[in-house]
Design a protein around this nucleic acid. Structure first.
Lengths: 237, 237
DNA sequence: ACAAAAGTGTTCTGATTACACCCATGC
DNA sequence: GCATGGGTGTAATCAGAACACTTTTGT
């Protein structure tokens, strides 16, 4: 017992510290009547000219959230988006440079905050299109889409895709696109209005080159003040 | 243009490869009529004698899923549990040894698979108790509990806490414990039986030292075959 | 016989569905 | 006037909440 090895120190653990981290983001927007996500053409070795999710290697001393913000600021000019930590992707051989675990985020940006011009190596792609992305980015994209859809029905995240003032038909359109299903407009409208989550502004959308009654602008008021707070709980699957 | 720097190589990225990874798991069980989670007293420098979630540093060449399985096998004798990738925890100064990003899992183990004897430095703790855990493990625990509860109402994960054959009152008890609310037994029962998710076995639980009508054992049949598959979609918040 | 736990039935209410109808505008 | 998109009303149905009641056991 007295003959035990030397006390461990930080140095004892050196061999654990040979891994790298990166961040990637699936940034979703509602643009031109369809759902899109942001793509980046990689320019650095070893992925030159491959398309993938916006992302970067980070240094061990870099914070992941800040790294995402910096990435966004650099490329779309600001980081004013809704961000949610998706999960880590850690498959052993996911990256040719060595063991890199990536922290994936999914984000939502409202269309009024989408810049008119993107850097040359960025583009918006249709969320439903099939792209061959680099590394495991198709996998990350799928998981993000899954979480996005779950969130859409469970939490008021839609509003992050829309400006302060929006029209209900855009709200509905997003659901129809995301789930590829029709929405009963009358019932959707009644439910969302009666929930008090949105409030009418009295302003109306002027229409150009189309007719029909002008749509009223609504604005998001925050989550529902739980109406009833059920006494008994029950599963729902 | 011709004067550009040398082509980058793997070596160019060396400075990114100074980070470490770990895995941690919040393993939940339904034991002795309450919900518990597994705790480990750390024995290695620099966390000696601090209690935290079961977990370990992993080498850059180790797979995270395998690492969790090995951890479980070593300490509870098998890895036959339901596991779900929670997310990565990456705060800059979460670990005294340096930048270590941990991949957190949450897991569910059925009480018939819980070993009678645990290693000395492991114990089951009440899920609702307040412990001072090492590092950011309280934070990880909270996120795991949140996801556990979400899952309970959204997906048929409860069955992972119960043996092949179980009685409905245990099923209900888990919900009551997790949400600290009463469940209307009659309605719960009707809903779960009519869902065809569980099937009665014809076997009954013999009771010792208590009276009351014997409970029938049920068994899980798999997820509901979507009864109606709604035409129109609607949010639910 | 009675207490305790398991399991069933019935009523009432309110949410959800389906769909018909009305409104405001451009051409 | 009529086509188009926005917006409201209503009747029928169905799922959920509440709770009383029956069954089977131990003591």
């Amino acid at each position: 017992m007295k003959n035990k090895a030397a006390e461990p120190t930080k140095d004892t653990f050196k061999h654990f510290f040979n891994g790298a981290f990166s961040v990637d983001i699936v940034l979703i927007a509602y643009l031109d009547g369809s759902l899109k996500f942001l793509l980046q053409k990689k320019q650095d070795y070893p992925l030159v000219n491959e398309w993938g999710l916006p992302g970067d290697l980070i240094l061990p001393e870099q914070d992941t959230d800040k790294a995402i913000d910096e990435l966004l600021i650099k490329n779309i000019g600001h980081s004013d988006v809704f961000k949610s930590n998706l999960r880590a992707f850690s498959e052993l051989n996911r990256h040719p440079l060595g063991r890199i675990i990536t922290i994936a985020f999914y984000g939502l940006i409202s269309f009024d905050k989408v810049p008119n011009k993107l850097p040359e190596n960025f583009k918006w792609a249709n969320l439903e299109a099939n792209y061959e992305l680099t590394l495991d980015h198709n996998h990350i994209l799928e998981e993000a889409k899954k979480k996005f859809k779950e969130n859409l029905i469970q939490k008021p995240v839609v509003f992050n895709l829309l400006p302060e003032k929006f029209i209900i038909s855009d709200l509905i359109k997003i659901y129809e696109l995301a789930f590829d299903k029709k929405v009963d407009v009358a019932n959707f409208r009644k439910r969302i209005v009666s929930s008090k989550m949105i409030r009418s502004t009295g302003e109306f959308k002027q229409r150009y080159k189309s007719h029909g009654r002008p749509a009223e602008y609504y604005t998001y008021e925050g989550p529902t003040k739980k109406k009833s707070e059920k006494e008994s709980i029950l599963f729902n699957f």
